[in-house]
């Protein structure tokens, strides 16, 4: 019984303390703006900004850089003056994770990088969607020659001819080690010249480890051991 008495007294004291001091109230949520040089937050369960931002920068910079070199080597007589127009069809998610709201972000990031490079000019996404809607074609069916001709024709009718078709795919590969796992994220950019069918491709990879404890990272990626079980 003494225990009940003690618990009752402790409880009554706690109630009085909380009521009189007002402690134990709900906390508020806060936010802050990151400076440009501050690193991205690292997603604990899925890929996020820390994964997709470097993937996009690596893949698109290398792909467009290589294409710019190719264009400089080719005689100016064969290439019409002005920036080459790229029809960026979209990002296809073939990874094991949901992209959620990141999908559009990735699209816009890639689109912006194309604009900023200067040599290429993207076709507005709204025209791309209108063209696909008008032709009733799926993006993954555009690589069939007949479909590509149909789509090119529709875009030309809308006053939006283009020289290249750009397609992005995100894939992932998962390696499990008991409670921890490593996931490799690969962004692949495929560029097709609609005039001659030439094809170029660039991929960028980011590897991430996921663990249930902070020691998991050390255990699985210990620099002093060459392999782990």
């Amino acid at each position: 019984m003494n225990r009940i008495v003690q618990h009752g007294l402790v409880f009554a004291s706690l109630v009085l303390l909380l009521l009189t001091t007002g402690t134990g109230c709900r906390g508020h949520q806060y936010g802050h703006v990151l400076r440009g040089d501050q690193p991205d937050m690292v997603g604990s369960h899925e890929a996020g900004a820390e994964t997709f931002n470097p993937l996009i920068q690596d893949a698109i910079a290398q792909l467009l850089g290589r294409q710019m070199q190719v264009m400089q080597q080719v005689s100016t007589a064969t290439i019409p003056p002005g920036p080459q127009r790229i029809c960026f069809v979209g990002v296809e998610n073939k990874s094991a994770e949901e992209l959620g709201d990141f999908k559009e972000q990735i699209y816009q990031e890639i689109d912006t990088q194309i604009v900023q490079c200067g040599t290429f000019q993207p076709v507005s996404r709204r025209f791309v969607e209108a063209g696909l809607r008008e032709a009733r074609l799926r993006p993954d069916s555009l690589f069939i020659p007949d479909n590509m001709r149909l789509f090119t024709g529709v875009m030309e009718q809308m006053g939006q001819p283009f020289d290249f078709l750009l397609y992005a795919t995100i894939t992932s590969g998962t390696t499990q080690n008991n409670d921890s796992y490593q996931r490799d994220y690969l962004l692949t950019m495929e560029l097709v010249n609609v005039h001659n069918g030439q094809y170029d491709k660039q991929a960028a990879k980011v590897r991430k480890g996921y663990h249930h404890s902070k020691l998991g990272a050390f255990k699985n990626y210990n620099p002093f051991t060459s392999s782990n079980n």
């Binding site: 009521l19 402690t23 134990g24």
Partner: peptide, 15 residues
Amino acid sequence: EYLERQNLAESALSF
């Protein structure tokens, strides 16, 4: 979302 967070005074009062 705000109310989901625990309020100890309120919990105690509900007891």
